[in-house]
Structures are given as structure tokens and as C-alpha cells.
């Protein structure tokens, strides 16, 4: 395993980067102009946060790379994002359900990181938290509006939840990188956030008239980098196209 602090920072940066890119795929094709603008703004916040995390990762690594090098010059096996965020957009409902599940975890995790013993990490968390609070307000409201909406919107939201729920567990897995961060008081134990997440989820799903799938099976392997889904590689061929075709291009 490489330096756990570098690994941890890549996880934070890659979550924001991969979800930011996914959400940006809606730019120009969202179902309504206001949604298009909201999605593009959410993507912009996430890509901005990714830059902060990955710049710090590169600084910690000390190998002369920067955020751009980490974003555009690594291949799929070096990415450390959760499997949830690399899942395809699907329909608008699936995109918003993915956003809601991620935002609920992200907000709680960032809130805990504002107490990090590493002041650089606490500063990025403090900045990001304000933006992510907005994201969660919107995604929770949209999940409720569509879940408790028409027959069709309800059906689509239930389908999205059934499809994405097996990716929730990975957000709360604790491994050796987390253990090193917990020992150094840099980051919280992901397991400690589960109860709060579950009760918030239950509250929103009840209001959205959606049924939480039973069972606790969870896909894993994204944050450790052991096993990404096939979707990430396809996404990177788009996101990294320019640097792959014209390495070191500048303009």
C-alpha cells in the first residue's frame, strides 16, 4: 500500500471528480432548463472540490504531479472513488437518487472532517461542506418530489433506489487506509456515520413513499481500487481523451 494519507486524499478527490464528471454529462440535455443549470453548478462545485483534494494529494506525494496530472494521467486501476459515483446516469431519477445517496454520506463525512488534525484537510472540508449542504437540500427535495409524484415518477425512483442501494454499503466500509487516518485523528471511522445516515435515509424515503430494499449485500472494490465496475473505464476514455490523444497539450 502506498502512503495512506495520499490514498485517503485520492479517495476524496476521485469521488468528487468522477461524480462531477458524471453530472456534467447532463449539461445541455437535462429535462428542464433549471435542472440543467442546477446539475451544471453541482458538477462545477464537485470538480472544484476535486481540484483542492487532488492538489493536496499531489503535494503530499511529492513526486512533481498536480491535480491535473492525477485526474488525466492515471488509468482506471489507480482511481479510488466509490463504485456508486461511477455508475451511469440512467434517467434523471437515477441521477438524482445517486446524488442523494452520495450527498447524504458526503455531508456527514465532510462535517466530521472539519475537526481533522490536519488543518489543510479541515480547511477543504469546511469549504466543501457549505456547497454540499446545498447539494443535499436539492437532491433530497427532488427524491421526495419525484418519489411522491406521479405513478411513473414513483416507479422510476423506486427502480433507481433498488438498483443503487447495493452500492451504499461501500461508503461505510473501514479498511487499513481508514485505520491509519483514524489513528492519526485525520478522518472519522466511516462505520460511525452509518446510524445517522440510516435514520436520515429512512426519514427521506418515508416522505418520498419509497421502500428501502431489504438485505445488506454491498458491491465493494472502488475505494480500495481492487475492482471498479466496467463503467469507469468507459467514462475515462471521454474524460481523459485530450490528454491521451495529445499528451502535454497546452493552449
Amino acid at each position: 500500500m502506498s502512503d495512506p494519507l495520499f490514498e485517503f486524499l485520492c479517495r476524496m478527490g476521485d469521488n468528487a471528480l468522477v461524480l462531477g464528471h458524471r453530472v456534467s454529462e447532463w449539461c445541455g440535455v437535462a429535462p428542464a432548463l433549471e435542472e440543467d443549470i442546477a446539475l451544471a453548478n453541482t458538477a462545477l462545485d464537485l470538480v472544484g472540490q476535486a481540484t483542492l483534494w487532488l492538489d493536496l494529494a499531489a503535494e503530499v506525494e511529492g513526486a512533481g504531479r498536480d491535480a491535473d496530472a492525477l485526474a488525466f494521467r492515471r488509468d482506471v486501476w489507480d482511481f479510488r472513488n466509490l463504485l456508486l459515483v461511477e455508475q451511469p446516469n440512467g434517467d434523471f431519477g437515477q441521477t438524482m437518487m445517486r446524488q442523494f445517496l452520495f450527498d447524504a454520506w458526503h455531508r456527514a463525512y465532510l462535517a466530521a472532517l472539519t475537526d481533522s488534525s490536519d488543518t489543510r484537510i479541515a480547511a477543504i472540508a469546511e469549504k466543501s461542506l457549505k456547497e454540499v449542504t446545498y447539494h443535499l437540500d436539492r437532491s433530497a427535495e427532488t427524491v421526495i418530489g419525484l418519489g411522491d409524484g406521479t405513478e411513473e415518477s414513483h416507479r422510476r425512483m423506486q427502480t433507481a433506489l433498488d438498483r443503487l442501494f447495493p452500492f451504499v454499503g461501500e461508503m461505510f466500509v473501514t479498511d487499513e487506509v481508514d485505520a491509519a487516518m483514524i489513528t492519526a485523528c485525520i478522518a472519522p471511522d466511516p462505520r460511525s456515520l452509518r446510524a445517522g445516515f440510516d435514520s436520515y435515509l429512512a426519514e427521506v424515503l418515508a416522505e418520498a413513499k419509497l421502500i428501502q430494499p431489504s438485505g445488506d449485500f454491498s458491491h465493494k472494490g472502488g475505494k480500495s481500487g481492487a475492482r471498479h465496475s466496467e463503467h469507469l473505464g468507459h467514462m475515462l476514455t471521454q474524460m481523459q481523451w485530450l490528454q491521451r490523444a495529445y499528451p502535454d497539450a497546452t493552449w
Binding site: E34, E35, I37, A38, N41, T42, L44, D45, Y134, D137, R138
Partner: peptide, 11 residues
Amino acid sequence: SQFGSTPCKAQ
């Protein structure tokens, strides 16, 4: 909408 023409604005 909570989001507008720039990140700092809502509609």
C-alpha cells in the same frame, strides 16, 4: 431553483 447563472446565485 436553488441554482442560477453563477454558483453564487439562485433563481
